[in-house]
Design a protein around this nucleic acid. Structure first.
Lengths: 297, 297
DNA sequence: ACGACCCATTAAGAGCCCTTATGCATAGGA
DNA sequence: TCCTATGCATAAGGGCTCTTAATGGGTCGT
């Protein structure tokens, strides 16, 4: 039951012309030429079957039919305009971030406050579901992902590489007279000794990894938990360095060696290419990139 | 303060898609391809700045933004559609005829009833103002004019030529023992002897016109009045034959001679070319042309 | 009477929108 | 599990509407 709607552009032109009582002024408002207005009105008149304007010497005036049509058209366009504007504005209201849990708990949770301070009008919703979000199927604005940065259709900004290095509390280090060389770490309890990062890091450091075998599995499943254990002095953890810059700065953890492991993957900010200029996405991008860059070397 | 309205065609497509929850069905309803719907929705989403649909496996569902936008757009299009339909229908309601007075009083007044019988939904308004109507400046649907039928931008249908001939009442004819030849008329009182038609007609009839000079001027300014005078037996009038076919058929007037004068002009039905298919105009045209043709030879 | 203003009209060109054709993903059935 | 049907996305190309630009007519104000 299609309503057989009239040519909509013609209606819009008609509405403006009716409001102004002038084709020229309507043309100016709509950013087109007077000839275009004249053409569109004539088109609409032919569709309706009757003139809508009487062409008087220095002005045009609505015919009876025209004056019945005009207010309704005006109302309709007002509704349309308001709804559209609301949708446009509303689309800036909530920023939905889908992020890997590690990043959310180790970095975002502690920094998102400064984003909210800067953009109080943007509500932030975090979605830490584990699956890789599909922007076409879920209402998500931006994602933070771990991977190689190559996702078709998405813009990817490198946040930082996932470089890892051992960390422990100062007190624990002191307890063995300081950590001077990598092998010293083996004197301590290794948090999650089954983590492949440990094996790789000791190999980078040219330390035999035999003694890692057989140690009790203390895996806690998350860097955040292991970091807490390390800060509590319960052992030495191997952690993503960037996540704990604050703790190091505050002296709650120390990074005894500059040596960094790198498993090749990284954290990326991603969003659909088509939406790169959406205000809230732009706002987040322009906040997080400098924030990450400033954030420790 | 232009509202910066969205692309209207895209909105119409969006409205249909939202209603159906399917691009394919929306395409069917709108009579276009699914690809076109997809294109328009994408366009609109880019303008709005946020997706309006989530693409689920076998269907599309509105996002939050989309579901806020949809009802308002639906309302707006309903208003638009109704107003447009009303204007379209309303344009068929009244037929305004601008006509020369002679035609109105001598022909139209007696025949218009049959048009109204056939089209009871069409109200007829007659405008017998004397100036030649300008369809661009006045709310007039059709005109009946006297002239040569060449008016740019207008369609002209010949109604009949303005052929004139003497007419008188049967009683008056009998009073002089019948009118046998044109010269007999000069025995009678000539209604409006200054009318150029008389001179021309007598010339056609090879009758000297000298005796027309000096007769009292009985001009009444209108054929209708002169016809009434003739029917009352007050004299012989020279009249447009077509206008008085009825009176002749009913025996109230007689046309003593077949000889017809013709001053070259005629009565025409005219209307703007662009409106030839407007229902009420078509209805009038399709009524009057046969009506005139049937109407006496 | 002349200039300013406004609308109508015309021809030519640009840009949008639609179509066709194809690909991808999912769901349902065998 | 494979196959088919369904639904949406995408790319390329062409038709067509609409715009632009230029011109003319008509009226009002000076």
């Amino acid at each position: 039951m299609s309503q057989q709607l009239p040519p909509l552009t013609a209606l819009r032109v008609f509405e403006a012309a009716a409001r102004h009582g002038s084709f020229t002024k309507a043309a100016t408002e709509l950013g087109m030429t007077q000839a275009a207005v004249s053409y569109q009105i004539k088109l609409l008149e032919e569709r309706v079957g009757t003139p809508l304007f009487l062409r008087k010497p220095r002005q045009v005036v609505l015919t009876e039919t025209g004056s019945r049509l005009a207010p309704a058209v005006g109302d309709a366009f007002n509704i349309l305009g308001e709804a559209y504007a609301a949708a446009r504005a509303g689309s800036g209201g909530t920023l939905c971030i889908s992020t890997v849990l590690t990043f959310a708990s180790n970095w975002l949770a502690r920094h998102i406050g400064s984003f909210q301070m800067r953009h109080p009008a943007i509500a932030v919703r975090l979605d830490t579901s584990s699956h890789m979000v599909d922007f076409a199927r879920e209402e998500v604005d931006i994602g933070i992902r771990s991977g190689d940065g190559a996702w078709p259709g998405l813009v990817s900004h490198l946040l930082f590489r996932a470089q890892y290095t051992p960390m422990l509390s100062p007190r624990l280090a002191d307890s063995i007279g300081g950590v001077k060389e990598p092998a010293d770490l083996l004197k301590l309890r290794i948090l999650d000794p089954t983590d492949v990062w440990w094996k790789r890091w000791f190999e980078l450091a040219n330390v035999p990894t035999d003694s890692l075998e057989g140690r009790p599995d203390t895996s806690m499943g998350s860097q955040a938990y292991e970091a807490n254990a390390a800060m509590a002095g319960q052992g030495v953890a191997i952690l993503t360095r960037k996540f704990f810059t604050n703790e190091i700065a505050e002296g709650r953890l120390i990074q005894p060696f500059d040596l960094l492991g790198d498993d090749g993957h990284a954290y990326w900010l991603v969003y659909p290419e088509a939406r790169r200029n959406v205000p809230k996405i732009r706002a987040f991008r322009e906040w997080i990139l400098p924030e990450i860059a400033d954030f420790g070397g």
